[in-house]
Design a protein around this nucleic acid. Structure first.
Lengths: 115, 115
DNA sequence: TCTCCATATCGATGCTCATCAATCTACGAA
DNA sequence: TTCGTAGATTGATGAGCATCGATATGGAGA
């Protein structure tokens, strides 16, 4: 946890129970935070929502008209989601089909539910 | 959904099923994205983890030594979490006790679980 | 081959973020 | 009222982000 004291406990009465170390480890927290960060944009969250509702059937050309952003910006968001490991894509000829990777949201979902 | 076409469908065969509108509305997506964004930092995610594990018992002076960041940075993170509606605080004398607001994570958790 | 189309990438821009040291604000105790 | 302490705020800085238009890539069809 890299615990290096920045303030020393006052000599008097303590303010609360001993100490409270985080249950989740650094790497675990880093992984989940990365996923959360990728979902921390309304467009990307809705993208995941659409992709999840239409598993493997949505191509980018159908995604573009759903949002008031340029095609290049949408492509950028899809890349962010892919870099976070949330989605992946498959090309068929000219078109690219995106889908939510199975289990990609499980760890974060589980933690949010309180394990 | 503010659907204003940026590209026109080609006249030939369609690439996929009609269209796929997002299930989650704009405001819903914006709310959940705000929460996700606040959790999109490893320190903040671990902060929520600690606070949740020690409901109402952890004061800031116990939080500071857990992370390798300055006191002012920690305070900044706590404020972000409060602004996102995830945590709240209560002062007792010199000390401030933070806690996770009940139900604050429910909407996002529910969506992640697939409703 | 040449051309058109879907998608990705690039480069620029303005905004937001995480971080720190320094300072400010309350409050408790002496 | 004076002093020390817990926590918040401020101001600065460098990094990262969302967005765009323009351009590149690469497959399909003529």
């Amino acid at each position: 946890m890299e615990t290096s004291p920045k303030t020393k406990r006052p000599p008097g009465e303590p303010c609360c129970e001993p100490v409270a170390y985080p249950d989740v480890a650094r790497e675990e927290a880093a992984r989940m935070a990365e996923v959360a960060k990728a979902l921390g944009d309304p467009v990307r969250l809705q993208l995941v929502d659409v992709l999840r509702a239409n598993a493997g059937k949505v191509c980018v050309c159908e995604l573009v008209p759903l949002f008031d952003i340029s095609q290049s910006t949408l492509s950028h968001h899809l890349r962010k989601l892919r870099d976070a490991g949330i989605v992946d894509s498959e090309r068929k000829g000219l078109w690219a089909f995106y889908y939510v990777r199975p289990g990609a949201l499980d760890e974060l979902a589980g933690w949010l539910e309180g394990r």
